[in-house]
């Protein structure tokens, strides 16, 4: 079958565009499913986490959950995503930004009893930068009226 060169080029371009479209579909499909740097406590509760291996768990440190052990080194706290919680045990130095109510990512293993034994704890901070007075003012404004939307 003798095709004209021009027709052949059109066919090739068509195939190329089709393949690119297919690739775009596959990428969209991938981002619909679960691909994350860390898992949330809700996912832990629903068992959507890797089994028999370490993983990262992320969320906020629950207010008033932080306790230091008798040895002065090990710490216990609870990670929450405001729906579910996971208790965490950790032995080692905490980053400076580690605070109750702030973001945290812990690497470690989930025990049989549902306690997460962390080998590394990292602080996750947000993209807000402001002087302490401004942060204080924002906080006050928020407690006065809950209608004020704070940047997360």
């Amino acid at each position: 079958m003798a095709l004209k060169a021009r027709h052949k080029r059109f066919i090739l371009i068509g195939i190329g565009l089709g393949l690119i479209g297919l690739a775009a579909m596959l990428i969209l499909n991938a981002f619909q499913s679960n691909m994350v740097f860390f898992y949330t406590p809700t996912q832990v509760a629903q068992g959507e986490v890797p089994k028999n291996t370490g993983f990262r768990i992320g969320g906020l440190v629950e207010e008033k959950s932080f306790k230091r052990g008798e040895d002065g080194l090990s710490v216990r706290f609870i990670i929450t995503d405001t729906a579910k919680t996971v208790p965490v045990i950790y032995k080692g130095v905490l980053p400076d930004l580690f605070k109750e109510g702030k973001g945290v990512v812990a690497q470690g293993k989930l025990g049989e009893d549902g306690t997460f034994t962390a080998s590394e704890v990292l602080a996750k901070h947000d993209e807000n930068y402001m002087p302490p007075e401004a942060a204080e003012a924002l906080k006050r404004a928020q407690t006065q009226s809950n209608t004020v939307v704070m940047p997360k």
Binding site: G58, L122, H125, Y129
Partner: peptide, 22 residues
Amino acid sequence: WNTLHQGSSINMGAAPKMAATM
């Protein structure tokens, strides 16, 4: 990806999430 690195502080259309002098 939801990663450790924070998002960008500066977006057009929204006020920068930073104090003005910073």
